[in-house]
Computed example of a mutant assay.
Amino acid sequence: MTAPKSLLGRAFALLAVFTAQRPVASLSDLSRGCGLPLSTTHRLVRELVAWRALERRPDGRYAIGLRLWELGVLSPGSRDLRERAVPFLEDLYEVTRHNVQLAIRDDLDTLYVERLSGPNAVSILTRTGDRLPLHATGVGLVLLANAPADVRQRVLDGPLKRFTARTITTAAKLRETLAQVRRDDYAVSDRQIEMTTYSVAAPVRDASGEVVAAVSVVVPAGTRRETVLPAVRTCGLALSRELGNRP
């Protein structure tokens, strides 16, 4: 990648090297990933460690530090939404005993802001803070179906990443699916991310009626949809009412 010129740009480029798939990185990894010389990377890393934005592990590699987490939870939108959503997510988990997720849209990504799980819930890939493409998950389909037209068009025009043989990878199929989501007011993502699971998702609306988030339950592939769909939709409606929505 082309290295940014400003100090702030360099710092963000370095931090962007870390992902859910690469939560730790060596100094060389960071240098290659952000396009900076090793000496420059070393100086920048040293400052970020001093500021607690990064932490140095015993093996010499680096990970995201607690200071960034402390700042992240101060974000007014996500903090308020998460705090108000947790009681409803807990109720949804108690009813279903499966993985419960809350997500928002960040441009063309699904951003997971909360997740509840239990010892008997099926194993899934996503964690709080993870991102996935909008077209491939239940919450993503809900968010995309209710996104502005230009956002939908950008997704339809771009490549649709394939995760499994059942992932939606054509614009025609995605357009048809989004129309169905808007009509039904819920989404089902059937084995698009993993062949062992599927998700059922419902929208969360604010006082103006805008879809600001989505809730979902991820269940084993053989689970009957009707055993979880009413609970997911009820959770979405209850949280919407908490946010001031009055249909």
Rank of each mutant, 00 (worst) to 15 (best):
R131V: 04
L134E: 10
L134A: 08
H135T: 07
H135W: 13
A136V: 15
T137Y: 02
V139H: 01
V139D: 06
V139F: 03
V139C: 15
L141G: 01
V142P: 11
L143P: 05
L144E: 05
L144I: 08
L144K: 03
L144G: 02
A147H: 03
A147P: 06
A147M: 01
P148M: 08
V151H: 06
V151Y: 03
R152C: 01
Q153C: 07
Q153A: 10
Q153K: 11
V155Q: 06
V155G: 13
G158D: 00
G158R: 00
L160A: 05
K161N: 00
R162P: 00
T164P: 06
R166K: 14
R166Y: 15
T167H: 04
T169F: 00
T170N: 13
T170L: 14
T170S: 15
A171Q: 12
A172D: 14
K173A: 15
L174T: 11
L174E: 12
R175F: 01
E176Q: 12
T177Q: 12
V181Q: 07
D185Y: 08
A187L: 02
S189E: 06
S189A: 15
S189T: 04
S189H: 07
R191G: 02
R191V: 03
R191N: 05
Q192H: 10
Q192E: 15
I193W: 02
E194G: 12
M195N: 12
T196G: 09
T197D: 04
Y198K: 04
V200F: 05
V200K: 09
A202N: 05
A202S: 13
A202G: 09
A202I: 07
P203N: 10
P203A: 11
V204R: 05
V204G: 11
V204P: 10
R205P: 10
R205W: 11
R205S: 14
A207M: 07
S208C: 04
S208F: 08
G209A: 03
V212S: 05
A213K: 07
A213I: 02
A214K: 08
V215E: 00
S216R: 03
S216K: 03
V218R: 00
V219I: 12
P220S: 09
P220H: 10
A221R: 15
G222A: 10
T223S: 13
R224E: 11
R224W: 06
R225I: 12
R225Y: 08
R225H: 09
